[in-house]
Design a protein around this nucleic acid. Structure first.
Length: 827
RNA sequence: GCCAGAGUGGCGGAAUAGGCAGACGCACUGGACUUAAAAUCCAGCGGUUCGUGAGAACUGUACCGGUUCGAUCCCGGUCUCUGGUACCA
């Protein structure tokens, strides 16, 4: 054994050995319990950052721990490889997105390997390769064939800078998620997936997801945003069609004093055509168009609208109320039209005050200090119904039900749920994505490409200008084709898919990544699914996880995926910060993993990032802290080197022979128990590591026994061997080396996790606390197996207690064996 | 505004089920080793007060209150911070 911990030599050597073997290869084995451990795959930007290191270190510790505990572990890795940066690089530097991406993947894979991660690279997937996107396309055609993919012309979010359509999810505060440019609107014919058909199940099935953080479930629930209410039809005076509105407050129907349509509502044009109101309606709509979504969606924006010269008839009481268009009603929620009840909705109240519209209260707040005839703000809580005909006197919550039923009986409308979730717009006017495998035929309409013709390959004769329509239009060969249905002349869809589709099923592909007959075999998926533990950043809490659940449910429904939910347990890791803020180039506080690995080695980097904070919390990077982790690993190495003269060539034996032995065995077994629990049950790697540090401290203490009859080399060797196993998931290179030095067979990766000896952590005596009135006064050592009564009797009898009680009256006696005795005294 | 989550030494954090607050590490201080430094090993390290001293007393987990023999932990209220979300009818 060498005297110095030469991490760079050790790490290189073991990485080569792992690569030359098939240790990390996973195979279906019905005799073994499987464990599918998955970390979110990265976008191949080219450089690994600390967030990756944290994510993958967490996963790797779990993978190695579970493997050592006999599980058949599937631990794959791949690349979320389509996306805008590759295309931007192509526009800027003239490098083809494919070669840019392929180079980056190679570079990042090399970096991942320097971290010593236990991936089964035989299952590597890259979403941009035809052998993968063939099946993304196939899944899309399945959506189409099941009526869940449709094309719709709609005003869509349009980023004038990226010149692309954005999903609602990609619009942040009215600005483009990528470049921050305010988003405008544009009419385009786009493909949508009907995720709203799954809204209810995506919501209710979350109750099964016990292993998900509440935070993530709440975020998804809010995103899906279910509201229960009713849709009600209002007649419009002198107009053929009925106006349908959605309301969550059917109980306030008698309080309606006006109606509002979204300016984009399809009725608006024809309602005002040829009237004196047409001009001001047009003026109002034009004014709104120039507002960005930032202003449009801000609730600080004053409510504005115009009367359109028409009246609606309240189906319940026949009242005639004016119709407005206004900036606070949105076309893409509900029906794009509302009934306005100013007395009981703050927005309506503000609008009514401004335009001097009637305010009719219909819910009386019982016992409240509110003057209903002179409201200063809307009353939104429940109360007793008034001014509501036959419903007067009912509790408003009851009236809500009754009026809903009444509306339904009379044929005025129906009870409905409304979701905030919209259908998923998946068309992108981009090159570097999965081509949408659809063909337009004059005769047959939109037809899916035949399965045997998949994949629809991305053409290579494409120009990257960064402007205008989809780059695929510049290909001379791509667009023209024949109709799969009638064989006539037809055109291919020239848009590509949102990259979120690629990542919505990759976890299924990993179960059978090299299959060129199917997306994955049902048998293999059945063995491996679902993912036992999924680990990734909380920034994917809504979109990726919702889309992946949607895909998985769809594939489950059509008989391919074996489970209705893909991810059984979810761990969302916190961000890596430096000096209290997110690492970013603009702040100049980026610490590169490469730099740390070069300076201290991968084992130190892994150990520090796991030790500094529990995984779900934010982690503040500390250069001193890293040095400390390196010091610890060196300390381990040095200890074993120093002890080598005693333990070399002897056989380990856990038999305890002396008091010093007893202390060491206690520390060792305690640590085994704690580390196992911390990894498996709590994912608290920080405390697992701290207890290993305590074990090392105990080993250093044991050195005092050297040269005395207390010293027992066989036990020392036993402790050292187990220490190496305990540390192996965290610092795999170092521990492979030490394991080999200690004569271990094969890889420590395949070694058996140590078990603890319950007897060794049992103590004959235990220190308890003596409290007087709940305050700690003395520490007393007593027999560990004393019963509650015996403990009390013993403690009461000793002199220290008598002195503390000092003849005063004991009001109450509390004893908790193994912990404390508390006397409550008076006077 | 609404919905989550958090607030503990100089710092990162620990206390797993209501039972010794501050494990472990960093930083710092002292000692040993060294010609010296680094490295290493050993020890100390919340605050206040008292004591020459070993030590002792009090106090302390954002703030105010409650439940309890006992509260970092449970309950009510307040403040601050972080994340999500927002004319969603």
């Amino acid at each position: 054994m060498k005297d110095k911990y030469n991490f760079s030599e050790i790490e290189k050597r073991w990485q080569d050995k792992w690569a030359a073997s098939d240790v990390y290869k996973a195979e279906v084995d019905d005799c073994k319990e499987k464990y599918y451990l998955l970390e979110m795959f990265p976008y191949p930007s080219g450089k690994l950052h600390m967030g990756h290191v944290r994510n993958y270190s967490i996963g790797d510790v779990l993978a190695r721990y579970l493997k050592m505990n006999g599980k058949n572990v599937l631990h794959p890795m791949g690349w979320d490889a389509f996306g805008l940066p590759a295309e931007n690089a192509a526009i800027k530097n003239g490098i083809h997105p494919d070669s840019w991406t392929t180079d980056n993947m190679a570079e990042m894979k090399a970096q991942l390997n320097t971290l010593g991660l236990s991936y089964d690279w035989d299952r590597e997937v890259a979403t941009c390769k035809p052998d993968y996107y063939k099946w993304t396309q196939w899944i899309f055609t399945q959506f189409f064939k099941h009526g869940l993919a449709y094309k719709k012309k709609n005003p869509v979010n349009w980023c004038p800078s990226c010149e692309t359509v954005l999903a609602n999810e990609q619009v942040v505060d009215g600005a483009c998620e990528r470049c921050g440019t305010p988003v405008g609107k544009k009419d385009l014919s786009q493909w949508y997936l009907k995720i709203t058909d799954y809204a209810d199940r995506l919501l209710t099935d979350m109750d099964e997801l016990d292993g998900w953080p509440t935070k993530v479930k709440t975020m998804q629930k809010n995103w899906i945003g279910k509201s229960t209410g009713a849709e009600v039809d209002f007649d419009i005076d002198g107009y053929d069609e009925k106006l349908r509105i959605f309301t969550t407050r059917p109980d306030t129907l008698f309080g309606v004093t006006y109606m509002v349509l979204a300016p984009e509502h399809p009725f608006v044009e024809s309602l005002v055509a040829g009237t004196e109101y047409a001009a001001q309606v047009k003026e109002f709509k034009d004014k709104l168009q120039y507002l960005s979504d930032i202003d449009r969606n801000s609730n600080t924006l004053e409510k504005e609208g115009v009367f359109i010269g028409r009246y609606a008839i309240n189906p319940l009481n026949g009242a005639s109320v004016p119709i407005y268009i206004a900036n606070y009603v949105l076309m893409d929620y509900g029906t794009g039209a509302i009934m306005a009840v100013p007395a009981h909705d703050q927005r309506d109240f503000d609008f009514a005050k401004k335009y001097d519209i009637d305010i009719i209260p219909v819910v009386d707040p019982a016992n409240a200090d509110i003057d209903l005839e002179n409201l200063t703000e809307a009353f939104v809580a429940t109360g007793t119904m008034i001014h509501s005909g036959e419903f007067n006197g009912l509790d408003s919550a009851v009236a809500k039900e009754k009026i809903s039923e009444y509306v339904k009986e009379k044929g005025f409308g129906e009870k409905t749920d409304n979701f905030r979730l919209r259908d998923w717009l998946i068309s992108r006017q981009r090159y570097w994505g999965t081509p949408i495998p659809m063909i337009y035929c004059e005769k047959c309409g939109w037809v899916a490409e035949k399965d045997e013709n998949l994949p629809v390959l991305l053409p290579t004769d494409v120009e990257f200008t960064g402007k205008g329509e989809s780059p695929l239009t510049t290909s001379k060969t791509f667009r023209e084709t024949t109709c799969p249905n009638c064989g006539g002349k037809a055109e291919r869809e020239i848009d590509t898919m949102d990259t979120f589709l690629d990542s919505s099923w990759y976890f299924l592909r990993y179960t059978d990544a090299r299959n060129d007959e199917e997306a994955f075999s049902k048998d293999k998926a059945k063995y491996w699914m679902n993912v036992d533990q999924y680990i990734g950043g909380v920034e994917h809490a809504i979109l990726h996880l919702l889309y992946a659940r949607f895909f998985n449910k769809f594939l489950y429904d059509i008989g391919y995926a074996p489970t209705s939910e893909p991810f059984k347990n979810l761990l969302t890791q916190g961000m890596v910060l430096k000096d209290g803020t997110k690492m970013s180039k603009s702040v100049g506080n980026v610490v590169s993993p490469e730099e740390i690995i070069n300076k201290y080695g991968a084992d130190t980097a892994r150990l520090f990032i796991l030790f500094a904070a529990p995984p779900e919390k934010e982690l503040d990077w500390s250069d001193d802290g890293v040095a400390g982790s390196f010091k610890f690993l060196s300390r381990v190495w040095r200890f074993i080197f120093d002890m080598w003269q005693y333990i070399d060539g002897i056989k380990s034996d856990a038999t305890v022979k002396s008091d010093a032995d007893k202390k060491l065995a206690f520390a060792l077994n305690q640590t085994i128990k704690k580390v196992s629990g911390d990894i498996e049950k709590r994912f608290n790697f920080n405390t697992a590591i701290s207890s290993i540090m305590e074990l090392v401290n105990a080993l250093y203490k044991y050195k005092d026994a050297i040269g005395t009859d207390q010293f027992n080399p066989a036990l020392l060797r036993d402790a050292i061997e187990k220490l190496v196993l305990l540390l192996a998931p965290f610092a795999p290179h170092l521990c492979e080396e030490l394991y080999a030095e200690l004569g271990g067979e094969g890889f420590v990766y395949n070694a058996q996790w140590p078990e603890y000896d319950e007897n060794a952590i049992k103590n004959d005596s235990v220190e308890i606390v003596l409290q007087i009135n709940g305050k700690v006064k003395e520490k007393i050592t007593v027999d560990a197996d004393l019963s509650r009564d015996d403990l009390l009797a013993y403690v009461e009898s000793i002199d220290a207690t008598k002195a503390l009680i000092d003849g005063k009256e004991i009001v109450k006696k509390i004893a908790v064996p193994g912990r404390l005795v508390n006397f409550v005294i008076k006077g």
